[in-house]
């Protein structure tokens, strides 16, 4: 793989990661108390958990299955999707049966997918609870995009001849750097693609372009020096 293609692919991977993080319903500390919609943890933790699972599945496929790179990327995507899907499902089980709140979005009046009424189920003083259908679907999409982004980083680093173990290490750092940029852009909680904060995405993409571009240039430049 030539250096320019590698750098461009890494930048694309960075942008995919940023887009993915914006899709994942993150509730942060308020959601941990069932006072906001989303999974009750920080953006970076959630995205990293899903991204790293994707990296593991992609790494296995890349080294042991002997398949085309696009299958590796898909496998990474599926790995992350499963991880985030299970996280949201178990989160919902706890919110519904443990805390006793209905999954509901406070950002829209009707769920864009099921068309169910939302606002009347939001407890006063809260910003929604649990993971409603639209957020769940958004999270699944985000998990897939993030998994593809993470495994693309890993595959490109391997293709330019970096040791697989070090590739995984750099891929994780690269993933976290981009996830933090997205987290700074979101600043707190986001419900998914229907959230008004999702419109801020272009700014995060521009930031990721700059930061991923620099990291990619440094890493790939170093390898080809």
């Amino acid at each position: 793989m030539d250096p320019i293609t590698a750098i461009v692919l890494l930048i694309i991977a960075g942008i995919l990661i940023v887009i993915a993080v914006h899709h994942i319903p993150v509730g942060g500390a308020p959601a941990a108390m069932a006072m906001a919609t989303g999974v009750g943890t920080g953006t970076v933790q959630l995205a990293t958990g899903a991204g790293l699972t994707g990296l593991v599945s992609a790494g296995y496929m890349y080294h042991f299955a002997g398949v085309d790179p696009y299958i590796v990327l898909l496998s990474g995507g599926i790995g992350s999707t499963l991880m985030i899907g299970i996280t949201m499902l178990i989160g919902n089980v706890i919110y519904i049966f443990g805390v006793g709140v209905p999954p509901v979005s406070a950002k829209v009046k009707f769920d864009p997918i099921t068309k169910d009424r939302q606002d009347i189920y939001v407890s006063p003083g809260t910003e929604g609870h649990g993971i409603p259908t639209v957020s769940f679907v958004s999270g699944i999409i985000g998990g897939f995009i993030g998994g593809v982004g993470g495994s693309l980083t890993y595959v490109v680093l391997n293709e330019v001849g970096i040791n697989p173990a070090i590739s995984a290490f750099i891929a994780i750092g690269f993933f976290i750097a981009n996830a933090v940029i997205a987290a700074y852009n979101i600043a707190g909680t986001i419900e998914g693609f229907h959230d008004p904060k999702f419109k801020r995405l272009p700014k995060a993409i521009l930031s990721s372009l700059i930061v991923s571009g620099f990291i990619a240039a440094v890493v790939i430049g170093g390898v080809f020096l």
């Binding site: 920080g42 953006t43 750092g173 933090v180 440094v218 890493v219």
Partner: peptide
């Protein structure tokens, strides 16, 4: 910053990974 303290700490190492690899490799 609204994203929690852990994200800042993770960034410290996440941002440094690529640079450390490149520096040592070069």
């Amino acid at each position: 910053i609204g994203t929690g303290v852990p994200s800042v700490g993770m960034l410290a190492l996440g941002g440094a990974v690529g640079a450390v690899f490149a520096g040592l490799y070069i």
